[in-house]
Nucleic acid binder design. Structure first.
Lengths: 138, 138
DNA sequence: ACCACCTGTAACTATTTTAATTACAAGGTT
DNA sequence: AACCTTGTAATTAAAATAGTTACAGGTGGT
């Protein structure tokens, strides 16, 4: 199973987006996510490095660098999931076995295609969509 | 990142499928995957419980229960990845925060859709396709 | 200038997951 | 009976994840 970082990161982004006029300190975000403030600050660091948010050392509050409709879940996913490949492949199959010899290439292709499908879906959903689902009741 | 079980399981299935006339003991499969025989036997157990292969206690050799073109990578994926959800969601967001209150439902939907796209792709690829890629040179 | 509050980050610990290994009961084959 | 096998429990090891403590240094109000 994929770690909770993606989920927490989307939570953080939604919170920031939903309160553009409040300068939320990491403690407040942590209270909403229900975790430790340091965990939040680590994630804010990753989101910042990915260019999704802006923060200032010493000063509470983070802001989005672009509109919520221009931030996809894939952007957030990549920000906090540094691993290029979603599926791990065992790394020393026996090359003297015909299957062992070719399996990594074949798996890379198959897993790559599957991951691409997933990423494609994630890229079609934006932070704005998340906000709508959270706040537009119907 | 997702564990190597899916990769190893596909490796095992491809090996069994490629040598229908040989009764491979778990030691031989382990030599091809390059891991411990017990790891292989555990995976064979999962594949068997999922109805993908047939084995006999005490007797070497496993056989597919149906043709390779009727076994999808999704079948193998589900056999060895018991977790229903690919993405983990943090589990006690603060329900007194509007975002915290609704985030789990929203994330479940978004992640569900992404996972569905991935599974759809995995279901379109069969063990037969893997065998072709491994053995048909062109 | 001071003080209260904040971020960014290192370092450490705890927990969980995954993989590897040892051990062995019990089935199969000759 | 001797030997090889599977199935599985139990243990250990290693790696990934999450939580925590600690603190250097920035920010802004007074």
């Amino acid at each position: 199973m994929i770690n909770t970082r993606v989920a927490v990161a989307i939570h953080i982004m939604a919170l920031i987006a939903s309160r553009p006029n409040d300068d939320l300190p990491s403690d407040d975000i942590a209270a909403s996510v229900n975790t430790n403030p340091v965990v939040i600050r680590r994630m804010l660091g990753m989101l910042k490095r990915a260019g999704l948010i802006q923060t200032t050392a010493g000063k509470a509050g983070a802001s989005l660098t672009r509109d919520p409709e221009k931030i996809s879940l894939l952007d957030v996913f990549h920000a906090v999931e540094p691993n290029e490949n979603l599926f791990a492949v065992h790394d020393n199959p026996n090359v003297r076995c015909p299957v062992g010899k070719g399996i990594r290439t074949v798996l890379d292709e198959a897993f790559g295609a599957a991951q691409h499908a997933l990423e494609n879906k994630l890229s079609s959903e934006t932070l704005q969509d998340i906000l709508h689902r959270l706040f537009d009741d119907e």
